[in-house]
Structures are given as structure tokens and as C-alpha cells.
Design a protein around this nucleic acid. Structure first.
Lengths: 352, 352
DNA sequence: ATTAGCACTCTCTATCAGTGAGTGCTAATA
DNA sequence: TATTAGCACTCACTGATAGAGAGTGCTAAT
């Protein structure tokens, strides 16, 4: 499929197409043939460029907002541009991402090593400030994290506090209702039991296999086991996935969002975040940087926008995904490098 | 001061002023004399109303966007309207806030009794959906909450998890670096010591008095004490106040925000939340509903907007504050009732 | 195959007149 | 004296019109 596109277009057309996309990304006015010849010295006259652009339009890479206006890239045009970007060395662009910046940012992240939430907030605000896009971090799926230990603490009256710690450092605490007669000693016994049974397993394994096995097996009627299981299930209930979002303010300074309705759509999509979560979860199955352009996007309110993502990992294991959402006209070469770099920084932070 | 205003205006002027404010809140078009006479049967001709409106303008309650347009309330006009609102019984307005709604909402909050954060999120989303304003909850100042107990759990290597529980149910956990040789037994001793010393005191008392006394007094050189103090201080460090915000999307549907620049200003103020936090902290010193109108507002980006707040309490003790931020043209009678009602619901939830 | 030339198209801006809602003022009225 | 009817006036808004400017497609020449 991608090969096809490269075959269809000869070298000259490709260069013109990329030039048009670059110009348009640079300034959101339709790009005319004259302008292209002046900015890039192709050695052709505007008329020739016009013919090429006309062909590109027929093939669906460009379109005219109206007769007698310059051309604007279509989603397909952007797609071609992005694909040819990853081929060529796109270094030189994205001057914000200097080695010094990476160094400084990595050190800043280190400070958050004991507080992942704060780290994700830091990542989103930094990314959105630099890119003028909305940035999102999808934290690791809780189910994929590894049970380290649970502690149960008697609080007041019939309440107990459950503290769940995973190997990834993700910590979850919750107040539970329980039998008022239960003592701290009882709780210690229950926690001890759970720790012995579950330690080293992922939360998904626990909820899908271990729990049901425990319920099934011989000590089904054992009071301790049934109590422990019930408490664990309470502690894990209602764990909705959440995302970290920032940059709605920053994205408003992009000229593409000069009308309120687009901002409104985007805000709505963010507010009803489940669709975005679903999309990002899907994207996080693939390694490396991914770009979803305009209508390739399955979410209604996000059509007309593009998403650039990169997975961050602990060692080899993918943990979550970092995303930038912005206009299809975004500076892909810049955002791609940014998301990629930042994701690597995050991965590195998890690694030491 | 307030008395003055009521003295300056005779009954007729007051009624006209309130009519103009009501009309304008209803529909954001300048209100003409004719329109007022038709909508309200004052028994006067438009000419008379014109004279009255002219006086009101001279006194600064109304202004004209341009000659030959109707009148629009000034901040002072809104102020008068709001003040006279709290006098009269404003029942009948705010049809959203039925007893059934309150009942249903209270029950919903009950479900969140063990998870305050989730409750605050629920409050903000509900409020902003109903009011089309941005809604904010300022949680209780950590310093005012009462130490219940701390638990220290050995995690991996040199890390320990500190779990701090307060009487209000606010729970704080943090991963700390510590001496790798320390054992769980040591940690239990340290926690036991802290619990014995601090239980029942507010976090402010602890940090302002108890800690320094501990450091000063005879067992200054005791290893256990110094270790315990150091761990407590680590656990409490960097506790920045945070707020719960929702409704940026909802507020965009108000016609007052049809231009992007105002939304941008508001987003910016929210993004740089410290000023808002400062304002709300100030407002939360006063009991009951408060209304800050337009330029009365000290925050630059919030001038031109109004803030309606109400404190929520546990028993008699004020905990935090609930706020709505919207255009000065907001429906005050509605938002006031809403904020007031919701704050009472929250207080009630804390009480049982 | 490329290019110069030219007529054409379409947006954008400015200008202008007409409309309508609303005002302020004045003189008449209760 | 307070109220009102009448009237001239103001100003935003709308729609039509014209001119400028940028860009195109097509054709004929190179």
C-alpha cells in the first residue's frame, strides 16, 4: 500500500507535494504555484508546478478550497508527507529538542521517580507547552502491573484502609466498609495471606485466575479465605482507567482553532474521555511512534485532528502511551521527535 | 454602604433596574425601554422608563454599548441585583434544583463517602453541567485536617511507603527514600512513636509546634526520634494544594463566550491555578454564599467574570469551598441556589 | 516537455444606502 | 408636577456593488 504511493508519484511530484505541505504547515494559507517556485528553487516555472499540482489534486493529495485559490493538503497528502518523513533523516527540525533539553528534562523527571502521577502531569504540561498541542498520558493499565503487597489498616468504626502496592510503584488506597468486630490482628492475618498468595502476579492474573481458583478450591468455606477474597475484591472494584491531559489552553493559540466550534469539539472529546482512552489503548499495542491523521481517526470529535503517539516502556515491557493531539496541519516533524524523545525519557526514568 | 444604595434608588427605579438585569440575563441583547414596558406591566410608558433608565445610567448601574442601543447592566448593576436577590425570597427560580434532585444527588454522594476525590469530581461535573459554568472545588486545607495515624511499609530496596490517614478520611501516600538497612520492625516502631505523639492534632499544629518541640527537647539525639521526625517531614513535603475543576466545555455554550479570547483567558487562569486557589482560600474564610462580580475580582484573567461560592463544612468546621465561575451575565438566582444546595449536600455527606 | 501569456474565477475589502430599534428632547396633558 | 406623545436623530446591521489581488486553467509558442 505505502509502496504503491511511492510508485505512483515520480520524484518531482513528491518534492512538490512535500513542499506544499511544508509551506502550509508553516503558514495556514493555501499554497500557490508561484509561491512554491519562489521559496524552493526547483528550476521550473509556476506553470509547470501548476500542472504538477493539478495532477496531485486529481490523485487526491491536494485540494483547492475554491477555484483560483492555492492548494491545501488533504489527509492523504499529510499521510504521504509523514510517511516520507520517517524515511529521510528529519534531523535539523524541532530545534526545541536539543540534547541539553533532553538532559535537563531527564533530570527533572528523576525528581518524580517516587510519584508517578506528578511525573505524568509534568510530562503533559511540558509537552503541550512545547508543541502547542493537547498532550495526554495514558498510564499503565492497572491489570498489567505486578502485585507487590497489600496492607490493611483498621481505621475508625467499621472502616478499614486497604493499601495496594505494585512493583511499578503504582499505589492505590481505598477505604472499605467491613465488619466492625474485626481487629488489626485479623487484618494482618488477611493481608499476610493475600501477600503470600498473590505476590509476583499481575493484577489481571489475580482477578482472572487466582481469585476464582481460591474460591473454587477446598478451603472455599474457610472464613479467612473468603474474608480475604472479599476484601481484595472490594479494594479493586471501580478502578476506572484515567488519563492525564494538558494543553487545551496551548492549543488555542494555533490559528487552526480560531473558531470556537473546533475547540468545543475537542473539549467534548476530552470530557468524554472513554473514547480517547479506547483509542490510545489500541494504539499502545504497537511499538514506536504512530501518527493518525484526520479522518483515519475513529473518534467522531477528533476527525479533522491528528494524533501522534509513542509508547513508553519499563525495560522491554510496554507500560503506557504518550499522545499529542493537534490540528492535521501540525508540524509533524517536530511533534514526532518530541513525543518520541519524551517517551524515551520516561522509559529511561522507569528503568533505573 | 449597601443601605446607601437602597436609599438612593426609589422603589420604581429599583424595579426597573431589576427588570433590565433580568431581561439581559435572559437574553444577551441590550434592553430597550419599549421591551421593558411590554414584558413587565409597570403601568408607565416607554418614555418614563427611558427617563428612569437614563438616571440609572448616570448613577452607574447601567450603560449603553452605543448611543441608540438599549441598556446593559454594569458590574454595579449586577451587584445591586444580587444584593436585592438575597433579600427577597428567590424561590421559584432554578427549576433544576427540585427536592427530588437534592434527594437523588445526596444519595449519589453517599456512594463516594470513602473516596473524597471521586466525590469532588462528581460535584464539579454535576455543577458545571447544570449551570453551564466552570465549577471548582477547593478541598480542605491539609493543615487543618487531623492526624489519625501514619503507617510505614518497607517497599523494595531503600524505599518505604508512608501512608498518612486523617480523621477527615484524606489519605496521602508517598514513596520515600530511606536507609536500606532499616527493617519493617524498625518502621513499626517509628510509626508507633509518631502515632502516639501526633494523634488527634492537626497537621498544622504538628508542623508548627510538635515537630520543633520534639527536635528541641531532651531526646534530641535519640536516633529513633530523629529518624521518625525526618521520615514524617519527608512524607509531608511538597504537598501543594490542588483543586478540582470541570466545565470548561459547558461554559463554551454560553453566548458570552462566543469569542475565543475570553475562553482563552479563562483557560489560562485555570491553568495557572495558584491565583484561583489564593482567591478561593480567601473566600472560604466567610460562611455562606458569596458572589464576586466582574471587576470586584482581584484576578486579572477573571475580570469580566463572576464567581459564586459557598463553603462546605463538617459539623461546624469549615472544610473547603465550592465555586462557580461564569460570565457576569450568569443567572445569579440559579447559580446561587445551586452552589448553596450542593455545598449543603456535601456538608451533610461529611456529617454522617 | 516546458513555459509565457491571457482570460477567468473567486475571495476579500471597502463603500454606500436602507432599515430598524432605540434614544433624548420638547411640548402637551392629567 | 409627573407623565406621556411626538419627533428628529443616532448608530449597528444588512445587503449590494465595485475594485483589487492572488491564483488558476488553457492555449500556443518554444
Amino acid at each position: 500500500m505505502e509502496k504503491d504511493i511511492f510508485d505512483i508519484l515520480d520524484d518531482r511530484s513528491r518534492r512538490v507535494l512535500n513542499a506544499v505541505v511544508c509551506c502550509y504547515i508553516d503558514k495556514p494559507d493555501p499554497v500557490g504555484s508561484r509561491f512554491v517556485t519562489r521559496k524552493y528553487s526547483f528550476g521550473f516555472s509556476p506553470a509547470t508546478i501548476r500542472n504538477i499540482m493539478s495532477d496531485l489534486e486529481e490523485m487526491g493529495f491536494l485540494r483547492q478550497p475554491h477555484t483560483s485559490a492555492g492548494r491545501v493538503p488533504t489527509d492523504k497528502g499529510y499521510r504521504f508527507y509523514v510517511d516520507s518523513l520517517s524515511g529521510a533523516g528529519e534531523a535539523g527540525r524541532a530545534p526545541e529538542v536539543t540534547p541539553e533539553f533532553v538532559e535537563r528534562f531527564s533530570r527533572r523527571l528523576d525528581a518524580f521517580r517516587n510519584d508517578v502521577s506528578a511525573m505524568y502531569s509534568e510530562v503533559t504540561t511540558t509537552l503541550s507547552t512545547l508543541s502547542n498541542c493537547v498532550s495526554i498520558v495514558l498510564p499503565p493499565k492497572a491489570g498489567n502491573t505486578t502485585f507487590n503487597r497489600i496492607d490493611l489498616i483498621k481505621y475508625r468504626g467499621d472502616q478499614i484502609v486497604a493499601l495496594l502496592i505494585t512493583d511499578e510503584g503504582i499505589i492505590r488506597n481505598k477505604v472499605l466498609q467491613s465488619d466492625p468486630m474485626i481487629t488489626q490482628d485479623d487484618l494482618n492475618r488477611l493481608a499476610g495471606f493475600l501477600n503470600a498468595e498473590f505476590s509476583g502476579h499481575t493484577l489481571d492474573e489475580i482477578s482472572q485466575q487466582l481469585l476464582s481458583r481460591l474460591k473454587r478450591e477446598k478451603y472455599q468455606w474457610d472464613k479467612l479465605v473468603s474474608r480475604a477474597v472479599s476484601i481484595y475484591e472490594q479494594a479493586m472494584s471501580a478502578s476506572q482507567e484515567d488519563i492525564f491531559v494538558a494543553g487545551l489552553y496551548d492549543v488555542m493559540s494555533m490559528p487552526d482553532f480560531s473558531d470556537l466550534s473546533r475547540i468545543k469539539e475537542l473539549s467534548k472529546a476530552i470530557k468524554e474521555k472513554h473514547e480517547i482512552i479506547k483509542l490510545l489503548a489500541e494504539l499502545s499495542k504497537v511499538d514506536g511512534v504512530q501518527v493518525v491523521i484526520g479522518n483515519e481517526n475513529p473518534i467522531e470529535g477528533l476527525k479533522g485532528l491528528s494524533v501522534v503517539t509513542s509508547v513508553y516502556k519499563e525495560g522491554e515491557r510496554p507500560m503506557g502511551i504518550i499522545a499529542l493531539i493537534g490540528p492535521t496541519r501540525m508540524d509533524y516533524s517536530k511533534t514526532i521527535i518530541m513525543v518520541d524523545t519524551i517517551a524515551k525519557c520516561v522509559s529511561r526514568t522507569f528503568d533505573d
